[in-house]
Design a protein around this nucleic acid. Structure first.
Lengths: 109, 109
DNA sequence: CTTGTATATTGCAATATTACGATATATAGT
DNA sequence: ACTATATATCGTAATATTGCAATATACAAG
């Protein structure tokens, strides 16, 4: 088929995979790093800094916003995007739990 | 176009996005959880437990293996897959650094 | 060496993602 | 109202991902 069969997985598994998928792109990682460093970001800056077209960056920003990882407010002629603290900490919790559920292991392989 | 322009990003950004992409699928999250719980896993079990075809699960296992997140050894007629501790802790480090680089923020939005 | 069982690979169809040019929209300044 | 600037959306092409049936491969048991 080609579409992910999310109905056979738990809500938690789907939620984590959705959040991770939103971050799992180098451009979006770069955008997030840039937002975090400057603690406010304008799309135009990114177009100059990353080597991607304006339309492409706008699209990546939209994806990050749709998934709730960033939020943005209109600031006159430009837009101010920043991290959504709630989603960010939620991701940290879920991911931390997931990663730490594996403990060193009695070697089998 | 349609292909990610990884050449314009740093190695670190590409590495993190590659690892995240490997995990960013509910089936692969479910597989990892299962491997962690049982600390050894056989593909056949997964076919029974998740509702996916054997070919599909084998493919997901291959992706997890290619990205270095799991490793597998042949055990007679079946295969034992388990977490690759090195990659797992690497992911934890990179991700922890990334997530913690954002600190609460002087609110702008 | 044949049979049964377990996993991998191949081939293919459906859908999703990535990227960008062109265009639309919105606001500030004149 | 008109212009310049900034961001969003649309349309489209290229590529990637997801899922599965069919088939191949590998091994153990007989």
């Amino acid at each position: 088929m080609g579409l992910t069969r999310s109905e056979i997985f738990t809500d938690e598994q789907n939620q984590l995979s959705t959040l991770l998928k939103a971050i799992a792109h180098p451009a979006r990682i770069a955008i997030l790093q840039r937002i975090i460093i400057s603690n406010s970001c304008i799309c135009g800056d990114l177009v100059d800094e990353l080597g991607l077209a304006q339309a492409t960056i706008s699209q990546h920003l939209k994806e990050l916003k749709t998934s709730g990882i960033i939020q943005g407010t209109i600031e006159g002629v430009s837009v101010c995007y920043c991290i959504n603290p709630k989603t960010w900490s939620l991701l940290g919790e879920i991911l931390g739990e997931f990663l730490s559920s594996y403990k060193g292991a009695t070697d089998c392989c």
